Amino acid sequence: MTQPAPIQALADAGVSVWLDDLSRERLRSGNLAEVIETKGIVGVTTNPSIFQAALAEGDAYDAQAAELAGSGADVDEAVFRMTTDDVREACDLFRPIYERTDGLDGRVSIEVDPRLARKTEETVAEAKKLAAAVDRPQVYIKIPATQEGLPAITAVIAEGISVNVTLIFSLERYRAVMNAYLEGLEQALAAGKDLSTIHSVASFFVSRVDSEIDSRLEAIGSKEALALRGKAAVANARLAYQAFEEVFATPRWQRLADEGANLQRPLWASTGVKNPDYPDTLYVTDLVAASTVNTMPENTLDAVIDHGEVTGDEVTGRYAEAQQVLDDLDGLGISYTDVTEQLEREGVEKFEQAWGELLEGVSAELAKAVTAR
């Protein structure tokens, strides 16, 4: 496989490129295999919105819906079966990459039911159930970085299950996520588990930060405010990487690394540019750094392949510049805490809404299948 030049440049800089999309149609048509072969992706992420869109389009799930209806499955069981089947099949497709990279890539993520985002024990139970159902070593179980999600992350990691922590917006919460990971590893080690088999990524959301802060800057409307548009998200992510470097250079981490533990890599999520005035590769080319993942919708991936200019590390050494952006926002009265807390609330709500629509759609398919019998 020969990767497109910009994707190879990202790989050379230590960036793993994943696709932020999965559907049965992609799997069965051979499209996902083609994207792996021609566009150089080495992993896939999913979320409730992606699954909702996949099940709402076409007829790829009709046969399974009829089978599940015939067996008396309720809507929650049907959704669980459909989504875990897709993720298992994708895992099998990525298995060669998983083996070639010693488990670093070839990863496929599946999220716990977003209705459990504020429920610790239920999240842990669902994570175990998902991992057992997919039953593939490269699956990542996605757990949101809510306050209630933090102890769930620790507990699931302690069980030896690999985790993709999602919906991270603030630097403070990101540090808490890294601490939750280290605590989980420490518990796993104490229980005699092999740390080398446990992996994790921390999904730090990017574009939504600019969308929210830009709207506040435009409401202020001053020359100083408008000059800061499109700068907050990249600055926030760069400072997250600074925190990553600090935490994974501590004696606490080194003790775990000596036992075979893997880095929890930062993953840049929500990388599709929402403002057409900005370069459509902004959240890729401006966030190049070693030991990171960038998960992209396919239109962003195509833009990077077509005209992305990857010039190496764009993160380290730019921390003072990034901090100045946040300081300038604070000087204009834009509260970082207020923005990030709002984005977390909205993120959970959006996934809950998508899940509700998914349940409604599958419920209608089950009812239709029953009527047709």
Rank of each mutant, 00 (worst) to 15 (best):
V206S: 11
E34S: 14
E245W: 10
Y98L: 05
S363L: 06
E77R: 02
R252G: 08
P276M: 13
E341R: 07
E309I: 07
V310I: 08
A249Y: 15
T371N: 10
Y140T: 03
V348P: 04
V370N: 07
D12E: 14
A191Q: 05
T197D: 12
L366N: 00
K39G: 14
Y319S: 06
V44C: 08
G40F: 06
L267K: 01
T45G: 04
E172L: 13
A127L: 00
A257K: 00
I153T: 10
L150G: 05
V273R: 06
E218Q: 12
L332S: 02
R118T: 13
R265L: 06
G361T: 01
F80Q: 01
V79Y: 00
P251G: 09
G30V: 10
A56Q: 14
E365V: 02
Q8H: 07
A158I: 03
L130W: 04
Y283T: 12
E346A: 15
E57W: 09
D20P: 02
S211K: 15
Y283E: 10
V177I: 05
V247R: 12
G312C: 05
A5C: 00
T197S: 13
I153E: 02
P48D: 00
K368L: 07
V288F: 01
A237V: 09
A235H: 08
Q353F: 09
A269S: 04
L359N: 03
N236W: 07
E346F: 06
S335C: 05
S222L: 14
G347K: 08
E212F: 15
A240F: 13
S162C: 06
K368D: 07
V284S: 06
V163S: 00
S170P: 05
Q324N: 15
S211W: 13
M296L: 12
L217F: 08
F204D: 03
V139T: 12
T292I: 01
Q342Y: 14
D12G: 10
P6W: 05
Q353D: 09
